[in-house]
Amino acid sequence: MNSQRLIIDRDTTPALKSFVKLRHDKGRDRWIILAPERILTPDETAVEVLKLCDGKDSVGNIAGSLAKTYNAPVDVIEKDITTMLQDLSDQGYITS
């Protein structure tokens, strides 16, 4: 079922696992990720990335669309979000 480590690359179509929830914590005015026994507070960039992780779009596409929105070099963005998603995946929060 989850017997292998997911390696994130540009073709991966990432999504948060069903039991990992990205929510806006209105009272504290911030975004949070709720997971078993964990509450993470992703920074603004991570939130923008995670909102695009729908399990259909690839990392390459997500990087492309963020590059347009923020007028930034796509290769830098792709590298950054791959690292971020790999980290979240290694914590058990990402599926593809």
Binding site: L16, L22, R23, K26, G27
Partner: peptide
């Protein structure tokens, strides 16, 4: 995946 939390914003 993304759900709004409908709490009263409150200090």
């Amino acid at each position: 995946m993304i759900e709004a939390q409908d709490n009263n914003a409150d200090a």
